[in-house]
Write a protein that binds this DNA or RNA. Structure first.
Lengths: 246, 246
DNA sequence: ACTAATTTGTGTAAATATTACACATTTACT
DNA sequence: AGTAAATGTGTAATATTTACACAAATTAGT
């Protein structure tokens, strides 16, 4: 498109009153939040799904979502919706992306803000099971309702990126974990296999793991040492700078 | 917070009709887009700002924003608003983050979706100058209207990260550029100084620069060679994988 | 108590990437 | 012709990444 008369002639300054009237009337849109909650169990990455609220769509799984209230902070809405749907609190939610194509929702114009989180399934027991809430292996997530597949994919890619740059993974493990568990986690999330010796060398070189002087129990083979993550040291030493790399 | 009776008793399933009525009435919110348009000129990173539409706030600069229409895709709204405010089209906009605290806007509840872009100031001449639209050196961006400082900061950090991982910077340079111009760009955006020899080595090793066999004109010193970026080769060879690093 | 199966724990050499650093060359200007 | 300014280039030291193999610890089965 090129420059049009409409653009040239339009005077963009508006009064507060004009804007107030626009805000109060013609341009209001329903806003929702959808939460993509990742967890890790049995060496598989999982995600929490429910049957859609819309009975019409209950043959498909959907993300945890609801409309946000007009007098509610966006982040607060995300926490409220998560709690309402799952009973979970004390979970850190990160905003990922906002999806706003016109026809994404069958009930009308609804723009949705996607949030995602990573939790330890053992530490965060679900308290509410409405709409068949339960964990799904991410490799079986397919044909979600509405545009939820796209939202899920976006959040999953974000997760893959973030876990390489931040120590998110430790949230998904028991408080005391072995290096094998840590590697299984990375392999599950990144969908790849890694060399065991190099993986260990990498983490030992970072020097953020504390050897607890304990070993795994009840494993049918040589038990591994248990570690915990040194968040304090990480906060002090974390990378300020990376280089140009593409 | 722990589990409450309210949570246990709430039945989360709703009918389509219930949702439709929520979408159509109580929960509608004004949505806006704000654009953070970065450009590069005179070895400085710049950003496009206007005086706020609200006369009351016209002593402060603000981002390019407007309300989105109820029947308009979110991305389309961003492009429309950019065009309306600046006359610019053919500019790639990337969504960055959505800001939704209750009192962020004086005209009422307005949730805003921030988009950002990087353009070559020479290639994209502005056609509209309402509200004193013009380029500001990013080092002089301070005290923006509303929460626009926060939005700007978020977009600037995103830019700093993305330019290290993707070849965005070439959009900001002339079609033919010298390595010094490229380095100035990176130094301006990242706010740092780099070693000239190592910078060159890095880019030559990537092997995405095409030597045009031409040299700079009208420089008061030895002219540098001119290059262009090989987008085709980049698309084929670009990094699929990075490692764990934090 | 022995054996088999499984997984942990460890080291090194080669290749690659990063860093710090200095001087001769080219051009415009006077 | 001389000066000022920026370009273009190389190397040695260090750090990081990669590929790769074998002994030790434990359980389960006999």
């Amino acid at each position: 498109m090129s420059l049009t008369l409409e653009n040239l002639n339009q005077k963009n300054t508006k009064t507060l009153k004009t804007i107030q009237s626009e805000v109060e009337s013609i341009n209001r849109i329903a806003l929702s939040v959808d939460c993509v909650i990742f967890g890790f169990d049995e060496n598989k990455l999982k995600v929490l799904l429910i049957r859609s609220d819309l009975r019409k769509y209950q043959s498909k799984w959907s993300l945890l979502g609801d409309l946000i209230h007009i007098n509610e902070d966006l982040d607060a809405a995300a926490y409220r919706i998560l709690k309402q749907r799952t009973g979970l609190s004390d979970v850190y939610l990160e905003q990922v992306h906002t999806f706003g194509t016109i026809n994404r929702h069958p009930a009308g114009r609804v723009v949705t803000v996607a949030y995602c989180s990573l939790i330890n399934i053992q530490h965060h027991k679900l308290n509410i099971f409405d709409n068949e809430l339960h964990w799904h292996d991410i490799n079986n997530v397919t044909e979600l309702a509405f545009d939820h597949q796209q939202i899920f994919d976006t959040c999953y890619h974000r997760l893959q990126k973030r876990i390489q740059e931040h120590p998110l993974g430790f949230n998904l493990l028991p408080k005391k974990f072995s290096l094998r568990e840590l590697q299984n986690l990375y392999e599950a999330i990144l969908g790849t296999k890694m060399d065991r010796r190099n993986f260990r060398k990498k983490f030992f070189a970072m020097d953020f793991l504390i050897d607890l002087g304990e070993i795994e129990q009840d494993v049918p083979h040589r038990p591994g040492k248990l570690y915990k993550f040194n968040y304090g040291k990480y906060e002090k030493k974390k990378k300020k700078w990376v280089g140009i790399d593409f």
